[in-house]
């Protein structure tokens, strides 16, 4: 069959496809330029723009505050690097506890339900304030009084509740026929979960999980509320001293830059999964 060569009609068609593609690229480019031009014009021509530019987009202050923000941003990075794995573990544990069916494990299940209900209900800001100020005030022996630690614990507790629900949604989305075939093979409930349900569930919930992590990365900014010296604290400190809010914009830029790789990783994982598991099943 190697003797096939495209017919004149096919070659013509390829030409048409090419020109259609060129046209859509052109349209996309023009639309982008038009939209962004309008946005910029709208912003710059607003009456208070000069004032805003001076207080929020001041190049001098951006440069001045950058080194401090850069240094303290590592505190935020450290918080989420430590919190993320902990959240995964706690979240999955809570989700599994909620799925437990053995009679003896009923208290565990009730605890898991109560945990997600309560912790998800409390605004993260409040939880950080309560734990960051409250736990050290207990003056417990042998535990740290560091606001940073307790604020991080608050983040872990709060996000684990969300992540547990994400895991639960994934676990419950696995079709009952999978459970039936695992049981038919003689697997125990725990084995079924461990080897059949959870691996499929985790794959399914990777995008919403990463979504929660992006959200967590941003919420590390909340620790500045209990006096932890992080990038936001540093920016506000600089701003209050110099009467200029540009550092806040700089911090915002830091957070955007750090969350983009995670977003792309999320897209890539999702695409790879679709290609692998749904090949040709359209």
């Amino acid at each position: 069959m190697s003797e096939w060569s495209p017919s004149p009609r096919e070659l013509e068609r390829r030409g048409i496809r090419r020109s259609l593609r060129t046209r859509s690229i052109l349209v996309a480019t023009l639309a982008m330029i038009a939209v962004f031009a309008l946005l910029v014009i709208g912003l710059v021509s607003s009456p208070g723009w000069d004032r805003v530019q001076d207080t929020f987009f001041n190049w001098h202050h951006a440069r001045e505050s950058f080194p401090d923000i850069w240094d303290y941003f590592w505190v935020n990075v450290k918080i989420f690097l430590i919190a993320e794995p902990l959240i995964l573990v706690v979240g999955l544990a809570v989700a599994l506890a909620r799925q437990a069916r053995a009679a003896i494990l009923t208290p565990l299940r009730v605890l898991a339900v109560a945990y997600t209900d309560v912790l998800r209900g409390i605004p993260t800001v409040l939880l950080i304030l309560l734990m960051g100020f409250g736990v050290p005030a207990l003056q417990l022996q042998g535990v740290t009084n560091s606001a940073l630690v307790w604020a991080t614990v608050a983040l872990v507790l709060s996000y684990s509740a969300y992540v547990a629900e994400v895991f639960r949604a994934g676990i419950e989305s696995i079709h009952p026929s999978q459970l039936a075939s695992a049981e038919a093979l003689g697997l125990s409930r725990a084995q079924t979960m461990r080897h059949v349900v959870v691996p499929q569930a985790v794959r399914r919930v990777v995008p919403p999980l990463l979504n929660d992590f992006v959200s967590l990365q941003k919420d590390t900014a909340l620790v500045s509320l209990v006096g932890v010296l992080d990038a936001v604290f540093a920016a506000r400190d600089y701003g209050n001293y110099n009467f200029n809010y540009t550092p806040l914009v700089v911090v915002a830029g830091f957070f955007v830059v750090i969350t983009i790789p995670l977003a792309r990783l999320c897209d890539w994982l999702q695409r790879r999964m679709v290609e692998k598991e749904r090949a040709g099943s359209r």
């Binding site: 096939w4 495209p6 017919s7 009609r9 096919e10 068609r13 048409i16 496809r17 259609l20 359209r282």
Partner: peptide, 21 residues
């Protein structure tokens, strides 16, 4: 037209539908 063809012509009701347009 669920699949893009690599060559040949498909005409439906007297009109070529394998044209990309």
């Amino acid at each position: 037209l669920l699949e893009e063809i690599d060559d040949g012509v498909i005409a439906f009701e007297g009109r070529e539908i394998s044209d990309p347009r």
